[in-house]
Amino acid sequence: MDAFLTHLRAAVLGTLVLAVVTCGAYPLVVWGIAQAFFRDKADGSLILDKDGTVRGSRLIGQGFMGAIYFHPRPSAAGANGYDAANSGGSNLGPTSRKLADAIKDRVAAYRAENGLKETDTVPADAVTASGSGLDPHISPRNAELQAPRVAKARGLALEKVLAEIHAHTDPAGLGFLGEPGVNVLRLNLALDGR
């Protein structure tokens, strides 16, 4: 019985002490260092307008539908997509009819928007939802296929739009980790001249 009470006391007090150290001191020290050296990133890599209004985050995708904009991937985050307080994927499996029907519609819409032939394949990322629903990137091929439409809608030369795509492509990490991606929000803001 003595051993039981000694251990119980250690358990309760140990929970308290370890909570103070790992849940109080530790996150505050990380917060202090993060705010001192990486304030912009620690606060969410936000993009501000000239008047200081927050227009989004460099890391978080936004929905775009207009012809003058590059379109991001389909999104399953929240009811309307790109809900940055409700991240998530479709979680539809390989034999899901719902998913196959959605892909069929998206493929048709993508071909129609961008003037592709019925036989042209469509980049996978253009017609599938990401895991987070907030994927800021599209694949370079997806962006290049959308470029003629955007150039025409904006009355710009195709070369200028392709150059902007190139300028807003995040390379693979250290040159070989992961995949390169075109940041849609930053690209669209650049085209808007902001």
């Binding site: 996978a124 599938t128 990137h137």
Partner: peptide
């Protein structure tokens, strides 16, 4: 298969 995966 890119459903549920991130481009990066």
């Amino acid at each position: 298969n890119m459903e549920g995966k991130e481009v990066r």
